[in-house]
Design a protein around this nucleic acid. Structure first.
Lengths: 233, 233
DNA sequence: CGTCAGGTTGACCGCTCTCAATGCGGGTGG
DNA sequence: CCACCCGCATTGAGAGCGGTCAACCTGACG
C-alpha cells in the first residue's frame, strides 16, 4: 500500500460520508421522517439531496429479476448516520435509484438540486465539498464491493462494527463513549448490507462475543477489545 | 421497481461510464500506455482525470490486511472501456485509491484536476456532466456490491458478459458486431472483479457454453442466445 | 522444441445458506 | 397482572455452492 499509516490504517478515510460544513449557515429547510417511513423511493424524480440532522437511514436498492421472480432481489446498500448525505445516486439519471428508509424518527436538512448546482458554480469550496462527498461515496461503495467479494463472514461483521463505531463517534451525536454503540438496524439489515444471511450475522456476533472482542445485549453493543477486533476485520 | 422498462430493463442505464462529450472540442493532451503498464498507482497525488480514447484498463484496489499478511488482499474494482473515465475515486482524498493498469496498449485523454473545477464553475453543462459521471459511478459500484452480495456465480458471470457487450457496443470502437466481443482481461481479472476464483469463472463460462447461451474460444466470445443469457443474469 | 502464462477440468472440503426450533422483549387486551 | 402475540434474535443440523489443490491442456514465443 502506498499510503503509509499506523495501525487501523484501513480507516484512514474516516469521513467517508462527508458533510456540508460550509452550508451550515444557509437556511435550508428541514423535514421529519417517522421510523419506518421512506424519505424517498426508487424511481421518484430527484428533487433534493438530504443531510441527516438526527436519526438514521438505510438505502435499499431493488434489483429487477430478469425472469419476473416474485422476489426481486433487494439489498441494503448503505447506512446513513448524522451529518451524512443521501440521494447522490440519483444525480446521474435524475431519479432516485434506491429507497431511503428511516431506522429511527429522523430529521433531514433539504438541499434542492436546482439550487445546488448554481451554488457550486459560485462558491468554489462548496463545489469542492460536493465533489469530495461524491468521490468518497464511490470509494466507500468500491470498498464494500471489495469486502463482499473477498472477505469471510467474520471479517465482514468485525469491519462493519468498527466502521459504524467510528462514524457514530465522528457524528458526536450520541452520549455513547467511543466504544458504546446502539445498533439502529436489525440483523437482517446488517446481513443484507454485508451479503450475509441474518443467521450468519448473529452467529458471527456471538463468536466475537465468545472471543471477548465485544459484548452485546440485543442492539446494545460494546467494543471490549478494539485491537482484537481490528486484527480480525 | 418503480422505473418501468422493457426487457433488459436492468441495463436501462447503459452509459454507466458516461463521457465528456462537451469537452471533445477542448485540446486536452493525450498519453500512451503500454499493455501491462500503470497509468497511475494507489497513493500517488491526483493530478488528472483520464478518459480512455483507445484500449482498455482495469482498476485494482489494494486492501491493507490488518495483521500484516504478506498477501494484502487486492481486487479489480472496475474495467474501463473506450470513452469511460478513470480517477474519480481520488477526488475525495487528493490521492488515487487504486492502480490503473492497461489491459492493452492504450491512449488516454488527460484532464488536469486543477483545470477541471474552474471549468465546471464556468460551464454549467460541463459541471452537470461531471456530477452525472460521478453519480453513475456510485450507482455502478453499488450494483456491483449488490451482485457480489446476493448473486450466485453463474448469474454474476452472465451479467458481466451482458454488461461488457453493451459497453463495447456503446463505445462503437470495435468492428465486432453487437454479439461478438474479445475479452481483454484474464479469467483471474474477471474472477477478482466478480468475487470468484478463476476456476469458478472458467466453469461458469463452460456451463454457459454447454447450455448454448454463448460460444467462446479463448478470449473470443460470441453471445449466441442473448435472451437466454438475460434470463440467467 | 521447450518453456511459460493462461485456461480447463476433476475431486474434495469448508463456509455459508437453508430450514427449523426455541428464546426473548415489548406491546395490547382480557 | 398475566396471557398472548408478534417481531426480532439465537442456535442447531444438514445440504450445496464455491474455494482449494492438483493435473493436464493449449497457444504464443524465443
Amino acid at each position: 500500500m502506498a499510503t503509509p499509516a499506523g495501525p487501523g490504517a484501513r480507516h484512514h478515510v474516516p469521513a467517508l460520508h462527508v458533510h456540508f460544513t460550509d452550508t451550515d449557515a444557509l437556511p435550508f429547510p428541514t423535514r421529519s421522517i417517522a421510523r419506518g417511513d421512506a424519505l424517498y423511493c426508487a424511481g421518484e424524480p430527484l428533487r433534493s439531496l438530504y443531510t441527516v440532522q438526527s436519526g438514521c437511514f438505510k438505502s435499499v436498492a431493488a434489483y429487477p429479476s430478469a425472469n419476473d421472480d416474485a422476489v426481486p432481489h433487494a439489498q441494503v446498500t448503505a447506512f446513513h448516520l448524522i451529518d451524512e448525505t443521501l440521494g447522490l445516486d440519483g444525480i446521474c439519471t435524475g431519479h432516485h435509484e434506491s429507497d431511503a428508509i428511516a431506522l429511527e424518527d429522523s430529521v433531514v436538512r433539504i438541499m434542492p438540486v436546482g439550487i445546488l448546482e448554481p451554488l457550486c458554480r459560485e462558491y468554489a469550496p462548496m463545489q469542492h465539498a460536493l465533489l469530495a462527498i461524491m468521490s468518497a461515496e464511490i470509494v466507500r461503495a468500491a470498498r464494500l464491493a471489495l469486502m463482499l467479494g473477498t472477505m469471510p463472514a467474520l471479517v465482514r461483521v468485525a469491519a462493519f462494527l468498527l466502521d459504524l463505531s467510528m462514524r457514530f463517534d465522528a457524528s458526536g451525536a450520541r452520549p455513547d463513549t467511543f466504544d458504546d454503540v446502539i445498533l439502529p438496524m436489525t440483523r437482517a439489515d446488517i446481513g443484507s448490507y454485508l451479503g450475509l444471511e441474518l443467521e450468519t450475522v448473529s452467529r458471527m456476533l456471538s463468536k466475537l462475543q465468545r472471543e471477548g472482542a465485544i459484548s452485546l445485549h440485543g442492539r446494545q453493543l460494546r467494543i471490549v477489545d478494539r485491537t482484537r477486533l481490528e486484527r480480525i476485520g
